[in-house]
């Protein structure tokens, strides 16, 4: 009964993913932020509260911070951690391009060769794309980020830097 795991399992649970799972980056909810969203995965119950703070407006808008509180499996937790590392500090238009690249990778059913220059640690999720049931785990935070960012840009075309919408503690 001591067979080696299938190759698939190790391609899913890359070291990078397990590292991020055990030591999540940028975790916690922080001020300031312009939008906060709560996303759930209704089939498994994973939950994520995510805040986005943008600085600058229009084409110069920059992802100044992405903070979060999450409960979920290793894949969803690690994906959130990797995403914040990739997106914080980037101009929004660049971040959107990374988002698109990650989505394409996840929907590629394992046929897409990930571009490390764009996705950094995100390439570790290439194996997840071969497990259709887990793709939604990896995408939970990315969808939440897009939702929150769209809310900020839609509601406030030129967000005022460092302004928190209100001082209520929502988390």
């Amino acid at each position: 009964m001591s067979q080696m795991p299938g190759q698939d399992l190790d391609s899913l649970y890359q070291e990078i993913i397990l590292d991020h799972y055990k030591r999540p980056q940028n975790a916690g909810l922080r001020d300031p932020f312009e939008a906060e969203v709560h996303h759930v995965n209704p089939t498994c119950g994973d939950e994520l509260t995510l805040r986005v703070h943008l600085e600058g407006g229009g084409d110069d808008a920059v992802v100044a911070d992405v903070s979060y509180a999450a409960e979920g499996c290793s894949i969803s937790q690690a994906a959130t951690s990797v995403m914040t590392e990739l997106l914080i500090g980037r101009p929004v238009h660049e971040a959107a391009a990374v988002h698109a690249e990650f989505l394409a990778l996840m929907h590629g059913r394992g046929t897409i060769e990930p571009d490390e220059d764009v996705l950094g640690d995100g390439i570790a999720f290439a194996g997840v794309a071969k497990f259709p049931a887990r793709v939604k785990c990896a995408l939970l935070s990315w969808m939440a980020w897009k939702d929150a960012t769209t809310q900020v840009l839609g509601a406030e075309p030129t967000p005022t830097p460092s302004q928190s919408p209100d001082q209520e503690e929502q988390a």
Partner: peptide
């Protein structure tokens, strides 16, 4: 260990 991860490894067996 999250239940998803438990089920995933069990499934691999």
């Amino acid at each position: 260990i999250h239940p998803h991860d438990v089920a995933q490894v069990l499934d691999s067996r």
